[in-house]
Computed example of a mutant assay.
Amino acid sequence: MKDPLTQRLLFLCGLLVAAFIAGSLLSSHFLQASTVGYLLQYVPVLGVLGMAQTLVMLSGGPGIDLSIGATMSLVGLAIAGLFGLGVPLLVACLIGLVIGGVLGAVNAFLVCVMRVPSLMGTLATFFAYSGLALALTGGSPIGGIPEWFGVLSQGRFLGVPIHMWVVFVPLAVGLHVMLSMTRFGAHIYAAGNDERAAFLSGVNVWRLRFTLYCLSGVIAALAAIMTLSWFQAARPDAGEGMELLSVTIAVLGGAHIFGGIGRISGTVLAVLIVTTLQVALQLANISQAWQLAAIGILLIGSVMADNAVGDKLRARARRAAS
């Protein structure tokens, strides 16, 4: 009998194939070669946010980061603002990564130190960061980004956007290795599965979760840099809706909402499914409202599948313990 997580990955592969078939039926333009490049243009930004959300969820708590899209917007504005003040763009991007980590640390402080439930704490920072982004710009984008910076997200190598090669793939591989082959990754799963047992075995659960919220902010800053390169401008609404999509991707990929279960490989497959579905619906000229409804149905189905996998794994753990 296959491991439930392996079954989940096979299910996701089947769902991806089904999404491609549905896309080809919805639009005759879907199977064109140009559609692949268009589809992959969206994958890195959504994908890195989904991976950040997966990390936060895996550590338990339960953990969630609803401010991730607002963090992305605010960091993008900060980078563009620093560049406008004369800071070299690459230096501004490095500072943006630090700012992302600081914004993530605010979430970590609320959740890990003040003991505010992650849903409420990160919802509060979502409103704070979003409001600050609008207040600083009056709702207007900040332009003036040089054309050469667009190579990151608009350039192609072997027909694939460069930010797939230099950001998305290295991050996915790095996080997979971290979770599956390092002590830190083992501690993440231990904290998500049983916080008390992890603490008694020597895992500093507080520090672990604090670190992951900070890392989530840094990854959101990476998404901001890619978006800045793509649009050649910083928009205060660049991350609007991304928080819910990142949750959908994480849960669809197999991250259990209460922690301890999930893989980065599942998150990668999930972002491909969600992106394929979005592009197919756009090419078919289906309204945004129906697109959101489709994503909602997908999320409901993924939660149901997530609960089924979680029940199997917990039952297996109880049998092993007895």
Rank of each mutant, 00 (worst) to 15 (best):
F210R: 00
L281W: 05
S201W: 14
A191Q: 12
R314V: 11
G104P: 03
R207W: 03
S59P: 13
I64T: 03
V279M: 10
I21L: 14
Q291E: 06
I142S: 09
S246A: 07
L110R: 01
A33V: 15
D237S: 13
W148H: 12
L85E: 15
G84W: 10
V218I: 01
L298Q: 01
L74Q: 00
L31S: 07
A270S: 14
L9R: 11
L10H: 08
L46P: 11
L77I: 10
V91C: 12
L245S: 07
G104V: 00
N285P: 12
A105K: 00
Q288P: 15
G139P: 14
I297L: 14
Y42F: 13
I145P: 11
Q278F: 12
R263E: 11
I257Y: 06
S34P: 05
S322N: 11
A321V: 14
L134S: 06
V56L: 01
T182R: 02
S265W: 14
R207T: 12
G96D: 03
L200E: 09
S322W: 12
E195H: 15
L208P: 11
A294R: 14
V98Q: 06
L175M: 13
V116K: 01
I68W: 05
L58R: 10
G101L: 01
F168L: 05
V166Y: 13
G139A: 07
G100V: 04
S216R: 08
A321P: 14
G23W: 02
L171A: 09
V274Q: 11
A80V: 08
S246M: 01
G60K: 09
L55W: 09
D194T: 12
V151K: 09
L215I: 08
L5P: 07
D3G: 15
T137I: 02
S229A: 02
A105V: 01
L222E: 10
Q282G: 07
S59D: 13
G260M: 05
A255K: 07
L10V: 09
D237G: 04
I257T: 10
S201F: 12
T227I: 11
T275G: 14
A270P: 01
M72Q: 12
I188P: 10
V268K: 06
V173G: 03
L97R: 00
G69I: 00
G155A: 05
R318K: 15
L252P: 03
